[in-house]
Each structure stands twice: as C-alpha cells, then as structure tokens.
Design a protein around this nucleic acid. Sequence first.
DNA 1: CAGTTACCCTGTGCGC
DNA 2: TGCGCACAGGGTAACT
Length: 270
Amino acid sequence: MPELPDVEVYRRRVERQVQHRTLTGAVVGDPLVLDGVSVSTLQRAVRGATAGAPRRHGKQLFVRLERGDDEGGGSPAWLRFHFGMTGRLRVVPEDDVPEYAYVQLALDAGETLAFTVPRKLGRVGLVDDPDAYVETKGLGPDALRIDRPRFEAVLSGRRGMIKTAFLDQSVLAGLGNIYADEILFQVGVHPRAKIAGLDAEPRHALFDAMKEVLHVAIQHEADPDALPPDRYLLPHRRGDDRDPFTGEKLQTVKAGGRTAYFSPSRQPEP
DNA sequence: CAGTTACCCTGTGCGC
DNA sequence: TGCGCACAGGGTAACT
C-alpha cells in the first residue's frame, strides 16, 4: 500500500486522533519490525510521552514524543514509521487489536495506535531529528512539496528511464510503483522512456500530473480503486485491465525491477 | 552510471 | 479440494 498518499492519510489520522494524547506504553509483537531500537528502549521512549505534531517526508512518517521538563531533558525523540509494502496505521479499541499489529502503542481512553505490517517489511524506529534523518538517508525532495524548478533540476542530467527516476527515493521522495504508473499514464509517457528524450513540454506535464494525482489520491483516502474510473488508470490496473479512454488492453513491462502497467496507444514505445 | 537480479518476509490468488 | 508457484503498492546490496 503505502506510497506518499497513504502515508499522508496516516499523518492526518495521527494529527486528528493521536496528537496531544499521552502514550502509556508499547507492545511489540515481533522485534524484527523495530529499526535500531530494542523493545525496552522503545517502551521507555514512549511511556508517559505526549504525541506532538506529526510530520511526513516521502513515505516516512515522524511523530514527536514530548514530555515534561522533568525527564529526558536532551534532544527530542521522534517515532519513525516506514510502512514497507503492507504497513498500515490506525487507532483501534485496545480490546480489538487487528491481526499483524506487531507494534501497538497504548493511548489513553482504552485505545491503541496499531501499526500492522503482515509482511514485516515495514519498520518502526526512533530518531532525534527528522530533518537529519532525511539528510543522512539521502532522501530527495518530497514529491508533494517540491516546486517546478526543483523538479526540473532533479530530472535534468539523468540518463536513465523516467520510471526508474520516479521510484528512486533519493531523486524524489514519495512516489511508488502504482502512483508512478498513474502519472505516466496521465501524461502519455511510456514507463521505459528515457528522461533525456523528453523535452520541456512533457516534463512540464509530468510535474502537473504528479501534483494532481497525489492530491486527488489523498482526497480519495489513498484508495486507488476510489479514483474516478473514467480517467484514471489505477481502478483498472487490476480489474478489467483496460484503458478507460480507449478500452484497449493494458500491457506490462518491467522497469526498475517492478511491473509497470501502461496503455500502449496513449503511451507509445520510446 | 544505468539496469537487472536476488533477497528480505508472508499472504493471496491462480493454474493444475 | 489441495498444492506449488508467482506475485505483491518497499528498499537494499551485489553483479553485469
């Protein structure tokens, strides 16, 4: 699931349902999903802390842990969530925790923030500064916040394929396999098209489509099947497999090691 | 540098 | 009905 739109939905969920509440403890069902922290360290960091404003960069979600000035007087700690392919985050009743909730953060009022991750490819960690984390991990600018000049700058000079660049989090942070496909479909660019072969007009259109697709996806709660089926690829990507405009069968190719769906007539071979 | 493959994990869906 | 295999919206390392 989680590409930028999903993580933004989770961020807003934390903002509305978790911010300002006190975390009373942590339960870890499998330490494999912890990144660089022990169970006990996570528990100490969480217990008694108040959730601050959540932040997102690309597919990373950060939640600040605030506490009274009597303890932890050093640098602030932030929870970091990365969702892998199947991670989810939601607030549930403490007596109705879903399956695969390998990290559970207890809230007040009998509720729990459940991080579910069936395939265990997601991670929860602690960082002391989200900006520093983004920097040291070499993440590119956030796809939702980047402006047009920066967008053109990060693409310029690249020799590879457009989809590979979109999937590379060090170029642009937040796009994943399915929203990259959607953007390329909207603009009519083949996933294996070389960036160097795209002139100013399609680059301009790619920026516009990226912003539009991300905003619309967030409006639809990051449910790809909820996008308007008359003009978006994703509702058809696993359903009827047909281009909503022409009715022709979608095709697939590999790019960047992942399967790209595209419409052969709208997105001609480079 | 660009591109591909293998791997990390485990659930699901399809073909036989 | 049951079994095996390929694949899945992420990321990284190693190899061509």
